[in-house]
Design a binder for these strands. Sequence first.
DNA 1: CCACCGCTTTGAGCGGGATCAACACGTGTC
DNA 2: GACACGTGTTGATCCCGCTCAAAGCGGTGG
Lengths: 266, 266
Amino acid sequence: MAPPALDMIMESRSSQSFGNVPSERRTGVPANDGDAEHFCSTCAFAEACAVAGYGATELTELHCLVEHVGPFEPGQRIFRSGDPFRALFAVRSGMVKTTLVDAEGREQVLGFYLPGEMVGLDAIYPEHYPCDAIALETTLCCRFSFPAMSALAARQPKIQQHLFRLLSKELGSASLLAGDHSADERMAAFLVDLGDRYAARGLSGTQFRLSMARADIANYLRLAAETVSRVLGRFREQQLIAIEGRSVQLLDPPRLRELARCVLNA
Amino acid sequence: MAPPALDMIMESRSSQSFGNVPSERRTGVPANDGDAEHFCSTCAFAEACAVAGYGATELTELHCLVEHVGPFEPGQRIFRSGDPFRALFAVRSGMVKTTLVDAEGREQVLGFYLPGEMVGLDAIYPEHYPCDAIALETTLCCRFSFPAMSALAARQPKIQQHLFRLLSKELGSASLLAGDHSADERMAAFLVDLGDRYAARGLSGTQFRLSMARADIANYLRLAAETVSRVLGRFREQQLIAIEGRSVQLLDPPRLRELARCVLNA
DNA sequence: CCACCGCTTTGAGCGGGATCAACACGTGTC
DNA sequence: GACACGTGTTGATCCCGCTCAAAGCGGTGG
């Protein structure tokens, strides 16, 4: 399928040379885990597709503006703070963290992104990525050209709606971290939230891998690494979790959820 | 005043009944502090209008989906947590805080909204307002029906773009609060940020009124009210600010900004 | 006038989590 | 094997900001 539609989608604005890329470059990639009818099942847009009951036309258009990028190796950056904003990235596999480096050079972890989640939404306004996106494991991504995305959104209300929802959703989750909570509450919330997000993608919500270092968890939760270690140790003593290295199992989700209540029920 | 045009817009989604609205219907409304050429100058969409160089047509369409609401008296709610999401609200005058009540019944202040700023963006995803919006002073708002807004956005790329930007902007500012910073840094950042936002609307960025109670500031900054009081006292001693009751003047913006650096330069 | 109420300020003591330091463990390198 | 290095755990101490308590301060209404 040669997508002449793409040229239209791209619109004039500042037309990138995207349309000149040989179509084999994109459509012929066997890595696509789907055809025109079955788009990447774990993708951040899977829901939009399903809900909207897209026909082949719309899916094709989505296919056209998506580009598979990666693999990125651990520590490698998908984008850097200050880079001009051109695209959103959906994690396909692996895990990504976003970090901010403040004036003093200290790193601040803003978030972790699981397969199916969208990175880069906070770059739309400033038109530059405000943070670094760093792979924590070998990571594959889908790259959505934002100009193309916007243009498609204008023609497809469902897509526009979905973008609004993605943005608004991230707004909501940003306020979770904001509250002042005890180390135990934060950690419980972190584990439960991670589990829920894995579960939402069809994976186990009680047994998963913490791809990030303890220091990253600590930084994200605004705790010291030592505190993270101690809290996890305490949780293990209390039979709340089983943890060995970076593999964790939630043994008592109800109690964890209870602990996390005042953080998550925000 | 709810223009009858609203009804048509509301269900337009696909149908474009916009063009059928008699133009007299819209341009003749005296309550709007602007005409078809000069839309509310402090409005959250003022920028969009200016940048886009809208003609009468687009402004007229915006006029149609806006409804002036209020005044809301201090303590009164513009919307409540759990209410179904139907509209965004732009503050016209006064001030609004948004708060979350957690499971334990404790209030959490999420943000303060000045004239020209948009409230309710975090409600798009859940389709219910996740928080209460409470007037801190006598407050006037513009109500933007969200379905109408979306429909318009689909037809006006500039509007869509502006909505994306508003959402993304709030995402960025949400991460400011997230860091772990000292009480002094947080307070300095709070004052500087407020000043900048006033300045952005053409008001003084160094002399303004803190419409909210100390307890609200404390809650927002995740500090105790006593700490807020002490820090403000210290700032006064150090000639950083002059403060009397709820009137504050920033005496040494550079030093304040320096203090706030690691919070704001996020 | 005083009483009352909400808001703010000030003081004294305490505790959660940070900090500093040492150690344990696994992995890769020479 | 010896060593360095990154990562994670554990212990001892300290300090910032919270908590509790009380008093100052405008307003408002009797």
